[in-house]
Write a protein that binds this DNA or RNA. Structure first.
Lengths: 207, 207
DNA sequence: CCGCTTGTTGATCGTTTGATCAACGAAGGG
DNA sequence: CCCTTCGTTGATCAAACGATCAACAAGCGG
């Protein structure tokens, strides 16, 4: 961006440092040194302390940048929109959700934070369960054809899809270029599985 | 174990240090300091270098300890045993596989290694695909009732189950005490999903 | 052109890190 | 009993770490 040493207004410089920190911490984790962050941002190490009190403050700013407001409230509304078939709603939601989180930065920083034992992951995934998985399970149950899935089943679906991103960004394994079809197939298989189970249960009750 | 400073024969001391390193690196990752490892093992930091050339050598010994020989060759044989129904084989395999890898040490060191960019994960998961997922897909296809699942579908099953361990050991979230029932339910749902898809395809072909 | 504000730097501090080494001391054979 | 062996330690090193600070210089109002 701006050549080294050139003056920049405070807001832009802070932004530049934060963006570099996001990239650097995604790659190396919280063990990344302040000198690495500074080099990546194209500024001196001392300048970091002009914009952030210390390394931990910068780290927390990185958290906020990556996770704040990633859960689009519209998703939760559309999950509840019973004018559309639940299959479509489930598929649409997970297409959008995976599109939102399948980035190098999101996936890796989330995993680094999990291993580091920050509360962030528990809070975030608590919200995922309460605001996404639980409503989805209720909508599936309300349909009638699929029985009432347990939360653990919803986590299985969630995990099967998120794992695509883990393979790609954590383990650096080849995955489908566009995860869309795999997501759609996964959702379909999941609902088919639920329906078969529900039918078995119904037949057992009739006998 | 042995009181500090007490002489121990070389083999036992090396073992003691290695075991402490496994626990310490599982918790803190490769950024764990040599002084931390030594304190955990109850020896001085200098003694580490009597048994390992440097920190990286110790790290690699930890890798070996945790991952070498975890893929039991019997699993691969039993997957191919067509005298038993494929449903049972799939469920049995994943019960044993998850029982083997769902430990604090395995799960976390594997994740640390993935983020650190070691080749270990790619090699290991390459083996998983070639020796486990591909054979499983072939056995499922050979049954006839489930169609021929793509590898991506097998990865979805794999991910849905492994994610239980990730929730537990990486994100420190509550999960079923015994993952067995969840594994069995996941496998059943997966096969039901495959079967429904195969039936749809068959019907399309008849039309 | 001056002088003030403020974004930026180079030098430097104390601490922690991985690694080395001379010296210690428990154990066993003669 | 002494002497050799070898597991173990405390002291220490150079490098790298997070953090601080006086000094510098770009831009702007006057």
């Amino acid at each position: 961006m701006a050549p080294r040493g050139r003056r920049l207004d405070a807001g832009a410089r802070r932004e530049q440092i934060l963006e570099a920190a996001v990239a650097c911490i995604a790659e190396r984790g919280f063990g990344a040194t302040t000198r690495e962050l500074a080099r990546r941002a194209g500024v001196t190490q001392a300048l970091l302390y002009q914009y952030f009190a210390n390394k931990q403050a910068l780290t927390e700013a990185v958290y906020e940048r990556v996770y704040l407001g990633r859960l689009d409230p519209r998703w939760m509304r559309e999950i509840r929109d019973r004018s559309r078939p639940v299959e479509r709603r489930l598929e649409d939601f997970y297409r959008r959700y995976t599109a939102a989180i399948f980035t190098y930065e999101w996936m890796r920083i989330f995993m680094w934070a999990g291993l580091a034992g920050e509360g962030l992951n528990r809070r975030y995934l608590g919200t995922v369960e309460a605001r996404l998985l639980r409503p989805l399970a209720e909508e599936i149950a309300a349909d009638g054809r699929f029985g009432a899935p347990e939360l653990e089943a919803m986590w299985a679906l969630h995990g099967s899809l998120v794992y695509i991103g883990i393979r790609r960004f954590i383990y650096d394994l080849p995955t489908p270029e566009d995860p869309g079809p795999a997501v759609a197939a996964g959702v379909r298989r999941f609902l088919d599985g639920l329906r078969a189970e529900a039918q078995r249960a119904r037949r057992r009750r009739l006998r």
